[in-house]
């Protein structure tokens, strides 16, 4: 085993529960989410508390229907929790209206989805620049930043391809570039490898680990134990509650990804 396998990672002291963490990006307390349906309310989250500190790489695991996506959507400010407090990078989310939530999503969160969610009519550099449009960044600066993010993802030579002209792994890297381009405090990923074969999935994990080494804060949702083991900490959800929080003593190591290189290892 590689004893110092994690040495190249700045490893914050993993706290199962982040009480007392000084520099928290996510701080949630007693979060509940209730969907009001015709057949009665669905209690998707039943009181969840945890903290994610700056620079951490955390996975959320659980069976289908356990509330992973619901929680991730709360963390991504796509909807608000029914009750509970949520501080995102120091901002109290509960107090915000729809427009302010949009702004927070724009400024503080980068989202990566299972289905990539790229705009098919736009080429990839415009896809990556999309958040900057809503951040009112001028056009040239926008495209420069997008190009930079794509180069970081090893896609500097594909700027003007359409999403339909690139592979799944490349699509997901475009999505990651889009999530990075605003320099957000937090990167969230919902089953980022769910639509990829295992080799490509492993490469995406390599990208996340590389970003993590650069100091990014990443929270991913997965139902796949193996993918979760690439992170430092696993929050297990069950029926809308935290079942346990597990520290990964020796995270799996994806083949090292050199960000910024036109890496051939990334197909």
């Amino acid at each position: 085993m590689i004893e110092n396998g994690g040495l190249d990672m700045p490893r914050p002291i993993p706290l199962p529960d982040g009480h007392g963490a000084g520099d928290a990006v996510i701080e949630i307390r007693d979060i509940e989410k209730i969907y009001q349906l015709e057949g009665g309310p669905v209690h998707a989250l039943k009181g969840i508390s945890f903290t994610v500190r700056r620079g951490e790489f955390v996975s959320i695991m659980g069976q289908s229907g356990s509330g992973k996506s619901t929680l991730l959507h709360v963390l991504g400010c796509l909807h608000k929790a029914s009750t509970g407090t949520f501080l995102l990078d120091g901002v109290d989310i509960a107090a915000l209206d729809d427009e302010q939530l949009s702004r927070i999503r724009n400024e503080k969160v980068g989202m990566v989805f299972q289905k990539f969610n790229l705009l098919s009519q736009e080429d990839i550099v415009h896809n990556v620049a999309l958040p900057l449009v809503y951040a009112h960044v001028p056009r040239h600066a926008r495209l420069d930043l997008a190009r930079g993010a794509l180069e970081l993802m090893g896609l500097g030579d594909r700027l003007h391809h359409k999403p339909t002209e690139i592979s799944g792994g490349q699509s997901q890297r475009v999505a990651i570039a889009r999530a990075l381009v605003t320099e957000p405090a937090l990167i969230l990923a919902d089953e980022p490898t769910g639509n990829l074969d295992s080799r490509t999935g492993e490469e995406i994990m390599g990208v996340f680990q590389a970003l993590h080494r650069m100091g990014r804060t990443i929270v991913q949702v997965t139902h796949d134990r193996e993918k979760a083991e690439y992170s430092q900490r696993i929050v297990h959800l069950k029926d809308g509650l935290i079942e346990k929080v597990e520290t990964v003593e020796r995270p799996r190591q994806a083949p090292i990804v050199q960000l910024g290189a036109k890496a051939k290892s990334l197909n």
Partner: peptide, 16 residues
């Protein structure tokens, strides 16, 4: 709708 969802997710406001 999906496009709207994507735009909203990356920060488009309702007025946008």
């Amino acid at each position: 709708r999906r496009e709207v969802g994507i735009r909203r997710a990356v920060g488009a406001t309702q007025p946008d």
